[in-house]
Amino acid sequence: MSKTLLGALEAGGTKMVVATGYADGTVVECEEIPTGDPVKTMEAVADWFRDKGIAALGIGAFGPTAVNPASPRYGQILETPKTAWRYFDLLGSLKSELDVPCGYDTDVNSACLGEATHGCARGLDTAVYLTIGTGVGAGVMIDGELLHGMMHPEAGHILLQLDPRDTIGSESGCPYHPNCLEGLIAGPAIKRRWNNKQADELADDGEAMDLLAGYLAQALVIYTLCYSPQRIIIGGGVADHTPIVSLARKKVVALLNGYIVTPEISDIDTYIVENSLDGKQGILGCLELARRAQQRSVSGR
């Protein structure tokens, strides 16, 4: 099984990362395909995989998307702001072209799985993976299983208390919520406040970083209290290129105010951590989805 070639697709809103590799985390090939028209994009993705000889494919898709196999929309993109992709059958389009077993989940759940299989959540049974970039997404693993429920976690859209210093106004970076985490901390919100600047251009602005870290800390406290994870892992461009993670750790301790007393919280620097796989956690998680799909196919489940 470990030498069986697998396929991985990290399907993002701006690019599709396609890769082949093995269950041990070895990546053989990896390329990027721009995300454009859904039909043409998926044709290009299928063409890339067609002659690779993969035994199974793992797909981590941008959301919202239907991840419950019992759903009539399983494998479809749902109410995304990318209107051309709404209700597009991403999974079905690839299964019909490639005819291999497929595993399917969200991109952030896949990243969480990658960290659990090969990274800093390995050996844990409950973890949260948060990515902060153009948007904010969260993958959640509970008792070793990726969390789905009625759909999948949309923990990037939890509602937060506005900081009175915030100049963002009534329109945040999210078209749905004026005070959700994504609307307050992701790339579009940063550009809206600070004259179209990128997060890395503000990394030395103490007041800006304190504001963003405060919102991140509110969210991390909510995840801590609701999911009780053994570790929270944070990635994405905003987190990777600014000090907000380290700043948020101290704020989390202050907000918890001694209510949670565990070894994890006592060692906050190893409880809230940055991603550990150099940006490959999504692809590695997709390879694990592919391995599981092949295993189910072999066992007839």
Rank of each mutant, 00 (worst) to 15 (best):
L98C: 10
Y22D: 03
E264M: 06
G173V: 00
E154L: 10
E182Q: 09
K40F: 04
D166R: 01
I77Q: 00
T4M: 11
T167K: 07
R249F: 01
L255I: 13
G53M: 08
T126C: 04
V67W: 02
V140P: 04
G279W: 04
T167L: 10
G137L: 00
G169H: 09
A116L: 05
C120R: 06
A116M: 12
T35M: 06
D240H: 08
L130W: 03
N275R: 13
M42I: 08
Y259R: 09
D163M: 09
G183D: 12
C120T: 09
T83H: 10
E154F: 06
Q295C: 04
S228M: 12
D240I: 05
C174D: 07
A203Q: 14
A248E: 01
I185M: 08
A55I: 11
G21N: 05
A239N: 05
Y129D: 07
Y176R: 15
T262H: 10
Q230N: 05
Q161R: 12
P175D: 07
A61N: 09
L216E: 06
G139T: 14
V245Y: 00
E43C: 01
N196H: 11
R73K: 14
K250S: 11
E154Y: 04
I222V: 04
V245Q: 01
Y129G: 04
L113F: 14
L159F: 08
M209Y: 03
M16E: 12
L202T: 00
A56N: 10
A189M: 07
V100M: 13
A70Q: 14
L212Y: 13
L6S: 07
D89V: 15
L216V: 10
R50A: 15
G183Q: 07
L90K: 04
M141H: 09
L247T: 02
D210E: 15
A213R: 00
L6E: 12
M151A: 10
A217Y: 07
C174H: 06
A290Q: 10
C286I: 01
A127M: 12
Q161W: 01
M141F: 08
R50Q: 10
D125C: 03
E207N: 12
G7V: 10
D210Y: 04
